[in-house]
Structures are given as C-alpha cells and as structure tokens.
Amino acid sequence: MPDYRWSHYLTAPWELIDEWYRAVKFGIRNLCQWFPVIWADRHYTSDGLFKVMRHKLVLMQRELQRDPYYVGADRDLHLMHVCELLLDRYLSNNYSEICHRHHKEKWGDMRSFFEPTYDHSTGDIDPDFCQWFTDWPKATTPKLEEKAKIEMRKCFEQERMLADQDIQYLFKLLSKHHRNWD
C-alpha cells in the first residue's frame, strides 16, 4: 500500500478493512481460476505459455462482456475472440489433416516398419539393429517412392508454415491492440 494513503486510513479505518477483504477475496478467486492451468503447465513446452495466454483472454472476455465500460468494447471483444480461436487452433495441432489429405488420396496411407539390418559382406542378419522404412501403397517403383517422400516433406513444411502463420497473426493482433485491453 502506498505511504501517502495511511493518513486517509487513520480517519477512515473501515476502508482499510474493506481493501484487505477485497484483496483476499479476489486472491482466492484467482487461485481457483488459475489452478487448473498452472497445475497442467510443464516448463519444457511452449504450449503452457499459449494455454496461459488463452486462459487470460477468456477471463478478459468474460469480464468485458459482463461490463463493456468503453466505446470500443465490442471490437476488442471480437479481437480477443479471434486471438482465442488462433490459440485454440494452434493448441489442437490439427494442421496435418489439412496438409496430408491430398497426399493420402494420391499415394495411400503411409506405412512405416522396422526391418533388421542385413550385412552384405557376411550375409548375416543383425537382430539388434533395425532400419526404419516408409512406403506408400501406390508408390510402386523407387522413382515414385522418392516423389512421394519429396511431397511428404512439402506437406510437413506446409504444416509448419500454417502453425507459424497463426502464431504470427496472433502476435500481430496482440502487439497492435494490447494497450486497448487495459
């Protein structure tokens, strides 16, 4: 509490009690609201950061819907909702469905399997070491398999690009409008 207010509290002590009561009340409420988010957070992933941001945006939207106390509140509610949707899309991580649909139609479902290594000089099979192979049912020749691998890499690049694009748009919205959301 600032020192300059103590003289006021000497003349009106009930306000000090009221201020402490509100601090404890809202502190307990915040603990209850934030406990599930903090409990599930792991420090080695960036998902925790985005879950915290999403939760904060949801709480801000709820408060602003309850009491839209300024002129641009509807616009800010919409922008907060867009940010929430971007975070939901990023956290659900469903970009692969969009990217791999055409590849799956063209080449079929990818099959991955391990085979033990074969030593060509001795002709022995070494069961302790395995190689990982990937193929597609419609890629029948080595040339077609190579083409399917190249297209699969492009799918992975597109998947990453879509996720990065959502995060860049999220931070663009936040950097442009965060001062209005006080």
Rank of each mutant, 00 (worst) to 15 (best):
W132Y: 04
W132T: 12
W132Q: 10
F133M: 05
F133W: 06
F133S: 07
F133Q: 06
F133K: 14
T134S: 07
T134Y: 01
T134C: 01
T134W: 01
T134G: 00
T134R: 10
D135I: 06
D135G: 10
W136H: 09
W136F: 14
W136P: 00
W136K: 03
P137Y: 04
P137A: 02
P137V: 07
P137L: 01
P137E: 06
P137G: 05
K138Q: 02
K138D: 00
K138E: 11
K138G: 03
A139V: 11
T140P: 01
T141L: 07
T141K: 09
P142S: 03
P142E: 02
P142V: 00
P142A: 00
P142H: 04
P142M: 00
K143A: 11
K143E: 09
K143T: 11
L144K: 08
L144P: 02
L144D: 14
L144S: 04
E145A: 10
E145D: 04
E146A: 15
E146N: 06
E146C: 08
E146Q: 15
E146T: 13
E146H: 10
K147S: 00
K147C: 02
K147M: 11
A148K: 12
A148F: 00
K149H: 06
K149Q: 07
K149P: 01
I150V: 14
I150S: 12
I150N: 06
I150T: 12
I150A: 06
E151K: 08
E151I: 11
E151M: 13
E151Y: 08
E151W: 14
E151D: 04
M152N: 08
M152H: 14
M152T: 09
M152Y: 13
M152I: 02
M152G: 11
R153F: 08
R153N: 03
R153P: 01
R153E: 01
K154Q: 11
K154N: 05
K154H: 09
K154W: 08
K154V: 14
K154A: 13
C155Y: 06
F156S: 12
F156Q: 04
F156E: 05
F156V: 05
F156Y: 07
F156C: 09
E157H: 15
E157L: 13
Q158K: 14
E159R: 15
R160C: 06
R160K: 14
M161Y: 13
M161W: 14
M161G: 15
M161S: 14
M161R: 15
M161N: 10
M161L: 14
L162D: 11
